[in-house]
Amino acid sequence: MKQIFVDIDKCTGCLTCTLACAAEHSSSKDIVGAMLEKVQPRISVEAVNGKAVPLMCRHCEEPTCVDACMTGAMQKDKETGIVSNENNDQSCIGCWMCIMACPYGAIQPNEEEGIAIKCDKCNGREVPACVESCHTGALLYVDGKTFTQEKLTKTAKALTEAS
């Protein structure tokens, strides 16, 4: 199953991924429209001592957000492995239990709509918009299993170990 991986060294903090993400999740599908619609990006770029670190949902094997969801809206799709609180039978109510549960801080409150929002891997898009938009190669969409390049394995390990 393909995962979004991060090569931290390559991220320059330009935030293009956040714009691409907002555009993809807007009705206009473009950056300017997304800004007008005030679409909140689902990927964030945190800063550690000024160094940019992209952060988005890892779509965990046993997602704590799914366990915490009291409406049943947050689910992990058996086929695609995508963890999402959208387009399921149940709907999100904005109780923020998933925010309390996610060890990555990858779920954001959308206070306006009163729902939690998170990466949905662009819901089946061949390559997620953030990855496609990344100019430096810091975001990659590759198969987690066959992926052996040392640096990226290291990153992935750091991400799972601290969780």
């Binding site: 991220c11 320059t12 903090g13 330009c14 770029v45 800063a47 000024g50 160094k51 940019a52």
Partner: peptide, 10 residues
């Protein structure tokens, strides 16, 4: 403002 854009920074 953090992180600031690396392209601009360079």
């Amino acid at each position: 403002q953090q992180p600031q854009c690396g392209f601009g920074m360079q």
